[in-house]
Simulated scan of single mutants.
Amino acid sequence: MTETVHVALYDTFADWEIGYAIDHVNNPEWQKQPGRYSVATVGATLDPVTTTGGLRMLPDTTLDRLKPSHSAMLILAGNNVWNTDRFTPFADKAREFLAAGVPVAAICGATGGLALAGLLDDRAHTSNAAEFLDGLGYAGGSRYVDEPAVTDGDLITATGIAPVHFAREIFQRLDLYEPDVLDAWFALYGLRDPAGFYALAER
């Protein structure tokens, strides 16, 4: 049975920040269980959204229809609406997912939205910078970790300039690859080491 990884859609969605993650989740090559996962999108409504790259995207479903039990993970890309009422429904859905024990992965501005919702107060996390979150007046400053990407239980967070690290944490949480495959993947895409390519080519 295929499990669905849901990607949240909203205007100003930073498409490039999650490209590595969703492309490889959706690609069965090298996976432990090829075809275990598929990717679908979820919006506040079914209306099209426009990404920062100018792409118009249509949600597959809406937040009110999405239940954590029907999802393997919720991915929240960066955006310019994270500190507005337009992001609140997505933060609320993230809270619902975490309460149900279903992973949430947030990068860049989406981490700010989760901080405003109080979802980073009791979990180790990262973001674009400690100062970015401190300026929001959130209560989780003592749990901030200065790393490109951080996983604490069911929550993954990342800085917007580390989409490869973000993807690696997602793959690890989903148990997508064998450890040696994940290491080779990161060597290739994260470290630009040709040895990673040759290791993957031998699979």
Results as ranks from 00 to 15, higher is better:
M1T: 15
M1H: 15
T2Q: 09
T2P: 12
E3N: 15
V5H: 03
H6L: 15
L9Y: 13
L9S: 13
Y10G: 01
D11L: 13
T12D: 11
T12A: 07
F13L: 09
A14K: 09
A14F: 02
W16I: 12
Y20H: 15
Y20M: 14
Y20D: 09
H24E: 15
H24V: 12
V25G: 00
N26M: 08
N26C: 01
W30Q: 08
Q31A: 11
G35H: 09
T41D: 02
T41H: 11
A44E: 12
A44V: 15
T45G: 10
L46S: 10
T50P: 07
T50C: 12
T50H: 01
T50I: 14
T51P: 05
T52C: 15
G53L: 11
G54H: 03
L55Q: 08
P59Y: 01
T61A: 02
T62H: 03
T62K: 11
D64I: 14
D64H: 12
R65H: 14
R65D: 10
L66P: 00
S69P: 10
S69L: 07
S69E: 15
M73C: 11
L74V: 07
I75Y: 00
A77R: 01
G78S: 06
N79Q: 13
N79A: 14
N79V: 09
W82V: 09
N83M: 04
N83G: 05
D85C: 06
D85G: 13
R86E: 13
F87E: 05
F90I: 03
L98A: 14
A99V: 12
A100V: 11
V102R: 11
P103L: 09
P103D: 11
V104H: 00
A105W: 02
I107G: 05
G109Y: 06
A110K: 02
A110E: 10
T111I: 09
T111M: 03
T111E: 03
G113T: 02
L114E: 02
L114W: 03
L116Y: 05
A117N: 10
L120D: 05
H125I: 14
T126P: 02
N128V: 03
E131P: 05
F132Q: 12
L133S: 01
G140F: 11
S142E: 06
R143Y: 06
R143V: 11
V145K: 13
V145E: 15
E147M: 15
P148Y: 08
T151A: 08
D152C: 08
G153Y: 04
G153I: 12
G153V: 05
G153D: 04
D154N: 14
L155A: 03
I156E: 13
I156D: 06
T157Y: 04
A158E: 08
T159D: 02
G160V: 04
G160R: 09
P163H: 07
V164H: 06
V164T: 14
A167Q: 08
E169W: 04
I170H: 05
Q172I: 13
L174T: 02
L176M: 13
Y177T: 02
Y177S: 02
P179F: 03
D180W: 00
D180H: 15
F186V: 05
F186K: 03
A187S: 13
Y189E: 10
G190V: 12
G190S: 13
G190F: 00
G190A: 07
G190H: 07
A199V: 07
A201Y: 08
A201V: 01
E202V: 06
R203H: 15
R203C: 01
